[in-house]
């Protein structure tokens, strides 16, 4: 009887005048965070699929003349960057901080290289052409609109991914992540891979499918 009463009091100890607060453990928070991030990824699928639908609706079975070597190069750079992102995540999970930080740095540099390729060269910010064709302009009807629209939205995601990598790098240098607790790294990695996978769809849709119109 008295034992039961004691237990009862203990149950009340967790509640103050604010009521019973469930303070989530790290694992519970991790689970919520993972779910939330994946739902965000699913949400973004609708944005990218909308853009892909626009491309097929407007371009049909045609495409503009684009520099194939440059397209292949930027795609390769982005895919390789994903490898280094995996390497970074595995490294922090094994407690190897130097490898983690170095891999992140490589990912960052490759991400910047991708941006230089797409925004710098393909958009013609540098005004340099490689082939004999002229650079596509944003005002070139549906070719310009869709190409700049799709690469632009993707580039925006790459930029935000780079921002995340930089943030994780700074926090990682200060020792903000441990073998067990590195949700920040994981989130950044999922997002980076996600942006990468989007490009895996965008690249053939923009560069390969359809007959080029001169």
């Amino acid at each position: 009887m008295s034992a039961a009463a004691t237990h009862h009091d203990q149950a009340h100890d967790h509640a103050d005048e604010h009521g019973h607060a469930h303070v989530p453990t790290y694992l519970e928070t991790l689970r919520a965070n993972r779910l939330g991030l994946w739902l965000f990824c699913i949400s973004e699928v609708f944005l990218f699929v909308a853009l892909i639908v626009v491309r097929f609706a407007l371009w049909g079975n045609t495409r503009p003349e684009l520099d194939q070597a440059l397209g292949l190069a930027t795609t390769s750079v982005l895919l390789i960057s994903s490898y280094f992102m995996v390497r970074a995540e595995v490294a922090i999970a094994h407690g190897d901080r130097d490898k983690f930080l170095n891999s992140l740095l490589v990912t960052f540099v490759l991400g910047v290289l991708f941006l230089v390729g797409v925004v710098g060269f393909e958009w013609g910010l540098f005004g340099i052409t490689f082939g004999d064709h002229e650079l596509l302009k944003p005002t070139d009807g549906a070719f310009g609109a869709v190409f700049f629209g799709m690469t632009g939205i993707h580039a925006l995601h790459v930029v935000s991914g780079l921002f995340l990598i930089l943030m994780v790098y700074i926090n990682g240098r200060r020792g903000g992540y441990s073998t067990e607790r590195h949700w920040g790294v994981e989130a950044c990695a999922i997002y980076w891979h996600y942006v990468d996978v989007v490009w895996v769809f965008f690249y053939p849709i923009l560069y390969l499918i359809g007959t080029p119109v001169h």
Binding site: L47, A50, L51, V54, L58, W59, G60, T62, P64, P138, T139, D140, G141, A142, F143, G144, A145, V146, F148, G149, G152, I153, V213, H214
Partner: peptide, 30 residues
Amino acid sequence: AAQLMVTTQRVLKLGFFDPTFSNGLGWPAG
């Protein structure tokens, strides 16, 4: 996405929804 496209068409003249484009090369319009 649709509102962004309208905005880019208004500000940057991206022709997503502009059917009048023609450059004589058979490029598609919006």
